[in-house]
Simulated scan of single mutants.
Amino acid sequence: MWGLKHTVAQPKIANKEGEIWWVIAVFLIALSFQFELASAFFYLPAFLVFTFWAILRQGYGGHGKLNNKTLLTMFFVFFITFIPQTLFNFKHDNILLGALGNALKDRKEINLTFWEFIKFRFDFYYRALTSIIFPQKQNTLNAFLLAAIGIYIANAKRLLKAKFVITFLIFIISPIIGFLFFRANEAKVYDYYLVGYFVPFIILFSAALSQLAKNWLGIALLAVFFLIFFQTNIPMINSYLKKGIAPFTFKDQISSVKWVLDDARDNPFSVDVWVAPIIPHAYDYLFLWLGETKRPIKDADSLYTLYEEPGNLYPERNAWLSQKNKEGIVEEEVQFSGITVQRRTKTR
């Protein structure tokens, strides 16, 4: 979309590069679906809004513009990218579409009024986006955030002419509006759902603060900002480099799943997994991948429970574990770093 914005804004370049940028943009959007659907899903409405804006500005048809030939190529590239996932989905009992359907079902819908829900969702947007700049010291960030908003309002005509501002604003607004309609699963939305929008937010925020560099007072304020920024973030980066961010690794996840499969041998077994994002897709994939023909069976007598740490921060985990203790007695427990695996015998 960055390349498209450049070509739409400059018709001479559009004649040379416009068509290929449309195809590249669609290919990258489709490719992003392979990595993180929750974040990439809102690329589509953002891209559609951008497309309509481009057509209004540039027109439709003709060399270098969006035309029938380019449109057909875009559809072809978009759908061909999904062939691997489609084959995987049907090979493994519709696991992808089934998981998506379950995530969208209105189970345990959050009990909030319209305005309470709006506040609830915007509190999440604020926390998720601002924490990537100042994980702490939110009050300090509020001052700079208000300053950035004020700068955009005061310089709206000039800043909106910048090539990147409209593109990134469309990107940011898309999930903000989209998640307002998601109320399923107690309306739980996690920070990583917005991972694809962190960079646009940072660029827009930085563009506003850059306007302060036009006088000495503004430069002094920027110096204060960077002093606080580095003071807050450098210790956290050092901690990450030394200790890592999670108490377990992908290798630990594989080891935990392999332990269940080896321990169960040829006996039927069921598995119940708790992870912080609630929906344990990662372990569903691992059991399908590593288990081959040996797969968990619902309501088997042998029950394995698997949960990740830190879980004591989540009341849901404690409630889940209490329920599992009622369902079965722990016979054996093993740990793989921050992952606990238990074999249980179900109580009658």
Rank of each mutant, 00 (worst) to 15 (best):
Q34S: 13
K157S: 11
L71I: 05
L241T: 11
L112Y: 13
N215F: 04
L145A: 13
Y283P: 04
E109H: 02
L87D: 04
K251Q: 11
I237M: 14
I173V: 15
G291E: 09
L160V: 07
L48H: 06
P135R: 02
Q58W: 08
W115D: 14
I80P: 01
W320E: 01
T73Y: 14
L286P: 00
R57I: 07
L303N: 10
E327A: 14
S239E: 09
Y283I: 12
F117P: 07
I297T: 15
I245K: 15
I80Q: 03
Q85F: 05
L112S: 10
F229D: 00
Q323H: 06
Y307C: 10
N185P: 03
K346T: 02
H63F: 07
W289H: 13
I177P: 12
I339W: 05
F229L: 13
Y197H: 02
D284C: 06
P268E: 09
V49Y: 04
T293Q: 14
Y43N: 14
N238R: 12
Q342E: 15
V271M: 02
I132N: 03
G59K: 11
F120A: 05
W274F: 12
L96I: 15
I203T: 09
V189M: 12
A223K: 06
F52P: 04
A208Q: 03
A148M: 09
L87Y: 05
A40P: 04
W274I: 10
A208S: 06
M74A: 15
L303V: 02
K161M: 10
P268W: 06
V257N: 04
H92G: 04
L145K: 01
F144C: 08
N102K: 09
W21N: 12
W53P: 00
Y240C: 05
F201H: 12
N155S: 14
W274T: 00
D191M: 12
W2A: 12
L241N: 07
S322Y: 04
I172A: 00
L286Y: 03
I329G: 00
L66C: 13
D272P: 01
I278Q: 02
T7V: 13
F168I: 02
E308F: 13
P315N: 04
M1W: 03
F120H: 09
F144E: 01
G338R: 00
S39G: 14
R265W: 06
W289S: 11
A147N: 05
L129F: 11
I29V: 14
E332Q: 11
D263T: 09
F78E: 03
E327Y: 01
I24A: 13
N15D: 13
V330K: 10
R265T: 08
A264E: 03
Y307P: 10
Q231I: 08
A319N: 12
T167P: 12
L44H: 02
N233V: 11
V23S: 08
Q10N: 10
K326Y: 04
L145S: 11
A264M: 04
I202H: 00
W53V: 13
Y190S: 15
D266A: 14
M236W: 05
F250A: 09
L204E: 03
E36G: 09
T130S: 12
L222N: 03
W320V: 10
P84G: 14
Q138S: 14
L286R: 01
T345L: 10
L129I: 03
A46Y: 01
I20Q: 08
D106G: 15
E19D: 14
I279P: 04
F134W: 01
K119G: 04
T113W: 02
W216N: 15
T7F: 00
A54W: 00
M1C: 00
T305F: 05
